[in-house]
Amino acid sequence: MIIAKAVFEVEPWDGPAVPWAARADPWSWVALDAACTDGQIGLFLAVLASRFDVSPQDGPARIADALVAEEMLLVNGGLRVADTATGSVVVPGCCAGLESWHEWADLAAGRAVWLGHDPEPTVEAIGDDLRIWQNRGSGDHVDIPRAVLPSLLLGVRRDLVGFLGALALWGVRAGLGERTAALVEAVGAMLLPVDVRDSLTSSGRA
Rank of each mutant, 00 (worst) to 15 (best):
R146I: 08
A186R: 13
A49L: 03
P60C: 12
P56S: 14
N76M: 14
D129H: 09
L191G: 05
A186I: 09
G97E: 15
A64Y: 01
D33E: 12
A181K: 00
W170L: 15
I3M: 08
D14K: 11
W27V: 11
G87N: 09
L183Q: 07
N76Y: 02
T201N: 04
G188L: 14
D128T: 13
W27E: 10
W101G: 10
P92K: 07
D14H: 03
R51I: 02
T86C: 09
G127H: 07
D129T: 13
A61D: 10
R205F: 01
G177M: 12
R205C: 05
Q40H: 01
R131S: 07
E103S: 13
S50W: 02
A125Q: 04
S151V: 01
V156G: 03
C95W: 12
D83N: 14
A108S: 10
L183M: 06
L169T: 10
G39C: 12
V7K: 04
V18K: 11
D33I: 08
V54C: 08
P92D: 10
A34C: 00
L43N: 01
V196K: 01
A182D: 11
R111W: 09
A35D: 13
L154K: 05
G42S: 07
G97A: 14
A46R: 05
A61T: 07
G155E: 06
R111E: 15
C94Y: 11
S151H: 05
A112E: 13
D14E: 15
L169A: 14
I63V: 10
S28A: 11
P193S: 08
I132D: 06
L160K: 05
L98A: 09
G39A: 11
L149Q: 03
H102W: 15
G15D: 10
D128F: 02
A31E: 12
S50E: 05
S202K: 15
A61N: 03
L152T: 04
V89I: 15
S28K: 06
R157E: 14
A82G: 03
G39E: 07
L130N: 05
V172R: 14
F163A: 13
V90G: 02
G139F: 08
L200A: 08
A61Q: 14
A182S: 03
P16W: 12
N76D: 15
R179D: 07
L48A: 06
S50G: 03
D159P: 00
L167G: 01
L169F: 00
I3D: 00
L152M: 06
A206E: 09
V68S: 03
D129S: 08
R197Q: 12
A181T: 02
L79I: 15
I126F: 01
T180V: 15
D118R: 15
D65F: 01
